[in-house]
Design a protein around this nucleic acid. Structure first.
Lengths: 339, 339
DNA sequence: CTGTTAGCGCGTTCAC
DNA sequence: GTGAACGCGCTAACAG
């Protein structure tokens, strides 16, 4: 109950015996204010504890210095790190962040985007949901700048994402290099560009080696368990290695194997997307990690450029993944033979 | 480039040939507007695509319909779920959420709180950082309502958190029930109320059973590995079970054990805080899970009550944890003996 | 039930 | 270099 009312710019002006607009210029810095007056204003601000009212300013200038960020969720290292970095970068540039989630639901995504628009964010970083209707999104957003992260959103929008094709290719080749006769790839049923692109890379690598492609689409727990067991335990050329196409798929695979009492020690495994626990599973998981921090930096950078009015044609940034070699691929076999 | 300018309430008023305040009342609903006029306004709104300007409204009424949420980070299931639920609950009540992170850094926490205050959020849900200076926080926030989550913040503030004492007690008793002769507890060096409270519960349980308490404080990787090995492998009464006091401690323990080539099969383990991968580690991890969704619901509910002007004395909600029994505690030994 | 008036706090002309 | 006046879009008083 100390300050019953926040001081306004006018209070400061009175206390410093100047006009309100002079205070305004001084507060925003840069502009020409005589040093003598500047000092008086500084003192007045300090002793009144004045802080500009963001709302009023935003209303006036039409910009909010806020970035909207819409992700599917926050529960994996990649998204978590990306979010952290986005916040950092935004802060460095004087922006605050409004973070929402759409839970992979296109309808909720629309609502959240509408909410961001109502909040008049200056720009949006979006990880589009699986069944996103691009036209619908564009229509809703009007001319608020958007940059897509992780997954492209049409071809008319800026986007920063992984070199998914290479990730699939590279992971497969590494497994092949380990002389795996038969590799089974597992993917999710979502129509997600990255998933399809990774799969394509995988297929091309297999073709190149003259191997037959075998892909399991994970629909539900039981079906996955069944298909996986079948692939791994059949008599005729059983699969000797698994390639997981994404974070959630890896989780599903690990659960399935655990339920069926199958351990990875005799099986090769690589997962695209790194996970917090990859290093202390037994065997530790070889993965392709996405450079989340770089993603975030580039996305924020590009978005701020658009926000500032840049009108260049859409930029698509493709970043290479990092193959993190641990034990599950077959390297460091000592590590996976303990006990 | 379609709409060069958003329609204002005045445009609507003109189009419906009524006064602006009539439109205002109609938009906000409830108020008395003649059905005939209401219809005209509805039409005007529809064909102009009018949407109220949140900024202007907030400036006018002095409330933003926004809740600030400040967490250490988002990288664990508990925080992740809590955040999701907070957003949901807030949305249900017509509030949007501004989510920030302080990375367990008291200084950054102050800055983020300041940022929230600048944004004029109507209330704040805070998971206080370890070295939080309560007075400082109170001073900064003035009379913005705050409810603490997971960790108390002084005793004058609303708080919803786990029954940490019981969690420590219960986990310990379960381990004792499994006839573990010697239990070593591992905690983090942070001065966090929950950690200390859990430890107290653990100590009391041990005392009650006439067992000696042995606690390792995790400071860095190497020291933890050393201490853990010492406890588990010494000749005289080696530890047969480990009790981890928190999520990050569990991660550290698992890494340490992995590095030292020690597996949990012969060792009892319970971790406070559940983790996504607890169920498919081998052995699967027995944990005490926090009811994140309940936490979030109660916190939002209480905060909204404060926001609405409730002036009751501080409420401290203490929720019981759920002991999720898997294999690592010693139950289901079959599961941990495979291969 | 309805319209007019007066700010919310700020940034921005435009004269001085 | 400085200050007075106006308006961003909306809602809360009033008077009709």
């Amino acid at each position: 109950m100390e300050e019953i009312k926040r001081p306004t710019i006018i209070d400061v002006a009175r206390a410093a015996r100047v006009g309100a607009s002079t205070v305004s210029r001084h507060v925003r810095g840069g502009k020409s204010v005589s040093p003598e007056v500047a000092k008086r204003i500084g003192i007045a601000i300090a002793q009144l504890g004045y802080e500009p009212n963001t709302l009023a300013r935003s209303l006036r200038v039409g910009r909010t210095q806020t970035l909207g960020v819409l992700f599917p969720h926050v529960n994996n290292v990649f998204f978590g790190n990306a979010i952290r970095t986005v916040q950092r970068e935004a802060r460095r540039s004087g922006f605050t962040v409004m973070l929402l989630m759409h839970e992979e639901d296109a309808k909720l995504q629309q609502e959240q985007l509408a909410s961001l628009k109502r909040s008049q964010v200056d720009g949006i970083i979006l990880v589009p949901a699986a069944e996103t209707n691009v036209a619908q999104v564009r229509a809703l957003l009007g001319n608020t700048p958007v940059v897509a992260l992780d997954r492209p959103l049409g071809s008319a929008l800026d986007c920063v994402m992984l070199d998914n094709y290479m990730a699939g290719l590279q992971a497969t080749e590494h497994l092949l290099w380990h002389k795996h006769r038969h590799i089974v790839s597992v993917t999710a049923p979502y129509k997600l560009h990255p998933l399809q692109s990774r799969l394509k890379g995988h297929e091309d690598a297999m073709d190149g080696a003259g191997k037959k492609v075998e892909t399991i689409v994970w629909r539900d727990t039981e079906q996955l368990e069944g298909d996986l067991c079948l692939a791994l335990q059949r008599k005729r050329s059983p699969a000797t290695a698994i390639l997981s196409m994404s974070y959630s798929v890896t989780i599903a695979i690990l659960s399935a194997l655990h339920d069926r009492n199958i351990r990875l020690h005799e099986i090769g495994f690589i997962g695209i997307d790194d996970m917090e626990f990859a290093s202390f599973l037994d065997p530790s998981l070889t993965t392709v990690a996405q450079p989340a921090e770089q993603f975030a930096q580039l996305a924020v950078g590009q978005l701020l450029r658009r926000t500032a009015g840049a009108t260049e044609s859409p930029v698509q940034v493709i970043l290479p993944g990092n193959l993190i070699i641990r034990a599950s691929c077959g390297c460091n076999p000592a590590l996976s033979k303990r006990r």
